[in-house]
Nucleic acid binder design. Structure first.
Length: 261
DNA sequence: CTCGACTCCTGTTAGC
DNA sequence: TGCTAACAGGAGTCGA
């Protein structure tokens, strides 16, 4: 599903849409417009303007608009895809659909001279809003520093995994990335977040950076080493131990009971 | 403030 | 073959 890595790939795709005048807006799904936004307001806000910058904070894609216009915030939920001029941001989306039906287009803009940017989301868990409150998101996972991670974990007794997926504290890590990071770091997802030693926290940070860097280069959150074994009956790719399947932080969690402690 | 439980959405897949 | 039910998770809300 789209996590920080996928949204970063979407952001790069969105850069193709910069500095082109918006001539039309389509927002056929009112449910997809968040915080009271309507199709009329959205259309009036974007038509005639240009996107001038494509930013990302966690899983939120931010498109700045010209002439003092609002910031367009795009969320992709579990199955959302960004398509610019027919080119998809990513090749394959775990849990997504192989099909790309026009009926799943929840938001689209047309540009002068042809071409378009559209958000296609079969399961409708994404959303569109204007001037999203960026301060509600924590620091982006791609740029986190040792002292930031210490603050994120704090003295919390919540499960380590739940804390890492709390977007208000650290933004961009979803379920698959979190399992991969903790597997690589050799840390039990159920450990109280505040119980990590300095050494363990260092391992966690190195794992986070390595996983984000490598999977971004590879092109998807689902391309990690753990992923292939992330199913019922799967075995740890490192030591062959049957993986443990639990619900932690409300999400299906796979971990190795032998080397994740 | 913290944290877990619950709810929303619907395409895909496993199973009968 | 055709149907049903379980499953997936990002994000918001609510209550202890």
């Amino acid at each position: 599903m789209p996590e920080g890595i996928e949204i970063e790939l979407y952001r790069r795709t969105a850069e193709r849409a910069l500095e082109r005048t918006i001539t039309a807006v389509a927002a056929p799904d009112a449910w997809f417009l968040k915080r009271g936004l309507t199709a009329t307001v959205l259309t009036d806000a974007l038509t005639g303007r240009r996107f001038v910058a494509a930013r990302r904070r966690g899983k939120l894609l931010l498109l700045d608009t010209s002439d003092g216009g609002p910031v367009l915030g795009l969320r992709f939920g579990m199955t959302g895809r960004l398509v610019v001029d027919g080119r998809q941001g990513i090749e394959e989306l775990e849990y997504g659909s192989a099909r790309d039906l026009a009926a799943w287009d929840r938001f689209a803009v047309e540009f002068a001279g042809g071409g378009q940017l559209r958000l296609n989301d079969p399961r409708r868990l994404g959303g569109v809003e204007l001037d999203p409150d960026e301060s509600r998101l924590g620091l982006d996972a791609f740029s986190i520093r040792p002292r930031d991670l210490r603050a994120v974990l704090g003295t919390s007794t919540a499960p380590l995994k739940a804390r890492l997926m709390d977007q208000a504290r650290i933004a961009g890590i979803g379920n698959l990335l979190c399992d991969e990071i903790l597997w690589r770091a050799g840390l039990d997802p159920a450990r109280p977040a505040g119980s990590l030693s300095d050494g363990e926290r260092g391992r966690l940070l190195r794992s986070m950076r390595a996983v984000l860097t490598e999977l971004l280069a590879a092109g998807g959150s689902h391309l990690g080493r753990l992923q292939a074994a992330r199913e019922r009956g799967g075995r740890c790719p490192r030591d062959g131990t049957p993986l443990e399947r639990r619900t932690i932080g409300g999400r299906t969690t796979y971990s190795c009971p032998k080397h994740q402690r």
